[in-house]
Design a protein around this nucleic acid. Structure first.
Length: 385
DNA sequence: CCCTGGCTCCGTCATCCGAA
DNA sequence: TTCGGATGACGGAGCCAGGG
């Protein structure tokens, strides 16, 4: 069994690693060593283009289920695939190419698999080049997270982080919310992505076919029929999987969601020209920021006018030669204020994501230890027979 | 009640870095 | 080269709990 290390891209760290008190939390999260830190699941150089298929299978009764689908993994759906239900205690760990999501029934039932195919090997040169470029850059939280695919920092305040949204997009479910469903779509560089989420009571995740006839089907999917993946008993019912159907394949990227949720953002398999380096689908992006800029400018000018009015009593006839500069400065300050606020928010989210990841990995570790134990026992008992 | 230390949030400045 | 966004660093303000 090719058990894949789930600790894929946990090398995230404070981009600047300045070690100040302000960033101590990030530094504590594990420093990205120069050069190789950004490796793991998202590292194209890791993609072993061997045809060997990794099967990851963990079944631990009573254990909390965690699902980790690492970046660069592609879930290649088989149209005829039926809903796959992971019994209580199962864990999906996929961080290597050509992996298979594999589950057995709690009592040794039939095995169902979802094959994961990694296409990154096809574009290794390109990806390596890109990776070098990325490593040479100074990373931001968002970049780090996107590259890791570990956590997605939301673009818009108050919205569900990391989940692209249109009219029916999801918002972070309240802890008690047990039946959460999300369908969203977005186009990037001509690639249409669909993401369908359903979290059922008990933590079942379902990938729904947009037009399919599964009961979880959501909305219109442009004729694509996608399989359903069901995972039961995720802790707190908090797992979210976003399904992507692109021109060049389907794929999942893990994403953290504020709270206890974990989601998977959408990422293209290949680096397409028009796509940003991250390729993570995030809702309501540029338009809003433009709008924000406008609003900021308006606010700045308003403030300026108010100040001018306030000052008019004192220096009525005085003309300040530096007025445009002042206005410019005010606008810059205003923008920077907003940016700082946003930056702090992202930082918080980033830390939360790291904490979530720690929790997930701890649980996985626990489960694997248990699995090892039971296998050992099994082996010993068979040996003595 | 006052003081103090810890914590959090905020605004500003400086700097880095990518895009134009 | 310039511009603007992102973010670390720094200091101030407010809140809260604990102690005298």
């Amino acid at each position: 069994m090719d058990l894949v290390d789930a600790n894929d891209g946990s090398g995230e760290s404070d981009p600047h690693n300045s070690g100040s008190a302000d960033s101590s939390a990030l530094n504590g999260a594990g420093g990205r060593s120069s050069g190789g830190g950004n490796s793991g699941g998202s590292d194209p150089s890791h993609s072993q283009s061997s045809s060997a298929i990794s099967i990851v299978h963990v079944s631990v009764p009573q254990a909390q289920v965690q699902s980790v689908i690492q970046p660069t993994s592609v879930i290649q759906s088989t149209p005829s695939l039926q809903a796959t239900s992971l019994p209580k205690g199962n864990i999906i760990l996929v961080s290597k190419p050509n992996s298979v999501i594999h589950t057995t029934g709690g009592g040794g039932g039939a095995i169902q698999t979802l094959q994961l195919v990694d296409n990154s090997g096809l574009h290794e040169d390109e990806n390596t080049k890109k990776r070098r470029e990325i490593l040479a850059r100074r990373p931001s939280y968002r970049k780090i997270l996107n590259e890791l695919g570990g956590c997605e920092i939301s673009e818009d305040k108050g919205d569900s982080p990391g989940i692209d949204s249109d009219s029916s997009s999801s918002s972070p479910a309240p802890p008690s919310s047990h039946n959460q469903r999300t369908a969203s779509s977005v186009s990037i560089s001509g690639t249409h992505y669909q993401s369908l989420i359903k979290v059922l009571p008990g933590g079942t995740i379902q990938l729904a076919t947009p037009t399919g006839n599964t009961s979880q089907g959501l909305g219109d999917g442009g004729g694509q029929t996608l399989p359903t993946l069901t995972m039961t008993n995720t802790p707190g019912g908090g797992a979210i999987v976003q399904y992507a159907q692109g021109q060049d394949g389907q794929f999942f990227v893990p994403v953290c969601v504020t709270g206890d949720l974990q989601a998977y953002a959408i990422r293209p398999v290949t680096t397409t020209a028009g796509l940003n380096s991250t390729g993570v689908v995030v809702g309501s992006g540029t338009g809003q920021s433009l709008q924000n800029s406008k609003l900021l400018a308006e606010e700045a000018s308003r403030n300026h006018e108010l100040r001018m009015k306030g000052n008019s009593g004192n220096h009525s006839d005085e003309w300040d030669p530096s007025e445009p500069t002042l206005q410019k400065r005010e606008l810059r300050l205003l923008k920077n204020r907003e940016a700082a606020r946003e930056c702090r928010r992202k930082k918080k989210e980033y830390i939360k994501c790291l904490e979530n990841r720690v929790a997930v990995l701890e649980n996985q570790n626990k489960a694997l230890i248990e699995e090892l134990k039971s296998l050992k026992e099994l082996y010993c008992s068979q040996k003595t027979d």
